[in-house]
């Protein structure tokens, strides 16, 4: 199949950037979206152009590196699918495909489709952990975790940190990401001692990074490749309220 690609090109963070049009020819429906871009890049290089820069690593939907908005939808709009797992059979010959980077003030563009997601790192560094020193822990079975809690914690812990939730949100809110981490750690007994401190610290850092606020539109849940539920945002709201009431001094 043949496609017309409208791709965001931006040399570096200071460049205002622009769209450029490329033709993707003889694309096999069995290719993944990123393999299609690989091929286009080989052609661009052959034509003495600079290839389109995009993040990808594992290419099996778990590392969370790939990050592009395809036709207005982060990761391209197949339910529960990252861009690297999106295959070309979902497109039709003759389609025009618009490809853009994540758009959020907290995710400045490095180049083309690559954005800087270190804001997520700083949120995690602020409190996304349980403080245990290596070796200073009890036997794993000494702490019982009800199966339901472990399963729910796992639902939240699946987050791959790709940032699609931020990219999809009209307010570029990181609530789903923060909620997933806070929920995971507050659902397991090991996370209880730091529960309040964690919620307050992570929310504070989230605000500082310049993410927007949740207006409950549900776009984050719709594009999340791991289909993490917006319920966790409700849980974060609850956690934070509980935390500031219980421990106003953090």
């Amino acid at each position: 199949m043949n496609l017309t690609l409208k791709v965001w090109r931006q040399e570096n963070a200071d460049d205002p950037g622009h769209f450029e049009v490329y033709m993707a020819q003889d694309i096999s429906p069995d290719m993944s979206f990123l393999e299609m871009l690989d091929i286009v890049n080989e052609y661009i290089i052959a034509d003495d152009g600079e290839p389109i820069a995009f993040d990808s690593d594992c290419r099996e939907g778990i590392c969370g590196a790939c990050s592009m908005v395809i036709n207005g939808v982060p990761h391209g709009g197949q339910q529960g699918t990252t861009a690297c797992q999106l295959h070309m059979r979902h497109f039709c010959s003759g389609d025009t495909v618009t490809i853009e980077p994540w758009r959020a003030t907290a995710f400045p563009v490095h180049r083309d489709l690559i954005v800087d997601r270190t804001s997520f790192e700083r949120i995690q560094q602020a409190g996304g952990f349980i403080s245990v020193r290596t070796g200073s822990v009890p036997d794993a079975n000494a702490t019982l975790v009800p199966k339901g809690d472990a399963d729910l914690a796992m639902d939240a812990a699946q987050c791959i940190g790709c940032g699609a939730c931020v990219a999809a949100c009209k307010n570029a809110s990181a609530m789903l990401f923060v909620a997933a981490k806070v929920s995971h750690l507050s659902l397991v007994p090991q996370g209880q001692p730091e529960r309040e401190r964690r919620a307050i610290a992570m929310v504070k850092q989230m605000d500082k990074e310049g993410f927007g606020n949740c207006t409950v539109t549900g776009a984050c849940e719709a594009v999340c490749p791991k289909e993490i539920s917006i319920d966790f945002i409700g849980r974060l709201n609850r956690e934070y309220g509980r935390a500031i009431l219980k421990k106003g001094n953090a």
């Binding site: 349980i130 822990v137 019982l144 472990a150």
Partner: peptide
Amino acid sequence: VDIIDQCSAQGVPFAREYGGLL
């Protein structure tokens, strides 16, 4: 054996049985 203890203490949501054991 220490690894499992360590990871569990970090909050890794290992699969559990209904009784709460690993």
